[in-house]
Design a protein around this nucleic acid. Structure first.
Lengths: 203, 203
DNA sequence: GTCTATAAATTGATAGAC
DNA sequence: GTCTATCAATTTATAGAC
């Protein structure tokens, strides 16, 4: 018999609850009982959907990855201007300022925590993948602007590092002002960077 | 009766062991049994030195803070040139490249994890303090160069965010190359920033 | 297909001997 | 002042009823 709609629905509920808790508390602090409670699903029943805590976390990361790709696609359909798209990336944390100040970047904090597990774990690979999605998308935008393959990769890494570092600092200092002002500085830096490259290419 | 030297010695052993484990595994994953084993001290005996796991972690953070201040003082005695001092800050992660790639920044990762605890905890305050030490020291260097109070604070924040973000990205991607190349880029950015400010002030 | 009850293991912390 | 033994609570995972 085919699983009824409820099955898929509860799976999504579980992933959503785990997603929130992993963001708010981290992987190790979050218990399956926490997840069960927030998802309104009996504790022992989680194992019907996810055999282990790790596989649930993996599903959470994949949901983050999917959402991220979706967001990138949306920006790509909205404008063909790579500079505009990159500005969207920089301003993304401002969509949830308060949460970023309280809990940091939902992706960066997961990477920080999960990368420390056994290297063979598929969780580690998933976390790495998440950060790679950022870098590769940004690189693609710089390629469109006209940057070379290697050049675009390096400046994309620098941009992602700047954004991640800003969120980490704002979270560590618990300061909304740091988040807003420093993201603006990243924006200005990027503009200057692109401008100075343009001028170099003229000569 | 005064505590014998052994008492202080074992305290230090415990903090050292906890320091390593908190860096390698994080706070929540590390158990007191882990600490006891690495410090070569019986498990039940930890509570004689530290009443709770949190107070042990607090001692770890304070040891990080003390070491950081010591390092800054060393740089200050070695050279009076603020640009040289800031370069030291940027290159600091290169002293333990392999560890940074594997485990991230020992301070940044602790902040990320501990800031998520109950805001009233003294652990959170200690973690915040750790990041503040970085920013304030960097700010002092920019002040010496001639930056204004607010200006110096903002560029100091940007510098610390860049360094932290670079370590996070290199750790997430598990790439030594990213760490080295991006720290170099931070250095170049800083040089350009200071240079362009000089030129602005001429006119 | 869903859930209750519980096992099995681990963990932070304590009591009390030496 | 130091350590062994152990408690009480928590946590992941499972067994089996419905």
């Amino acid at each position: 018999m085919i699983a009824p709609y409820d099955s898929a629905k509860k799976r999504i509920q579980l992933v959503q609850a785990a997603r929130e808790l992993l963001y708010e508390q981290g992987f190790h602090k979050t218990t399956l009982a926490d997840v069960a409670e927030r998802a309104q699903i009996p504790l022992g029943n989680i194992n019907y959907y996810f055999a282990t805590k790790r596989s649930l976390a993996e599903a959470v990361i994949h949901s983050h990855a999917a959402e991220l790709r979706e967001r990138f696609t949306l920006w790509e359909t909205t404008s063909t201007d790579p500079k505009w798209r990159l500005r969207c990336l920089i301003r993304l944390p401002l969509e949830s300022t308060e949460m970023v100040v309280r809990f940091g970047c939902p992706h960066g904090s997961l990477c920080q925590e999960l990368e420390k597990l056994d290297a063979e774990s598929s969780l580690v690979a998933a976390a790495t993948q998440l950060m790679t999605i950022y870098v590769e998308w940004a690189q693609q935008q710089f390629r469109t602007i006209g940057y070379g393959v290697k050049e675009s990769r390096q400046i994309a890494e620098q941009l992602v590092a700047s954004i991640q570092g800003t969120m980490l600092l704002a979270h560590s200092l618990r300061s909304q002002e740091v988040l807003e002002k420093q993201l603006l500085r990243v924006e200005l830096w990027l503009e200057g960077e692109i401008q100075s490259r343009k001028e170099r290419n003229k000569s």
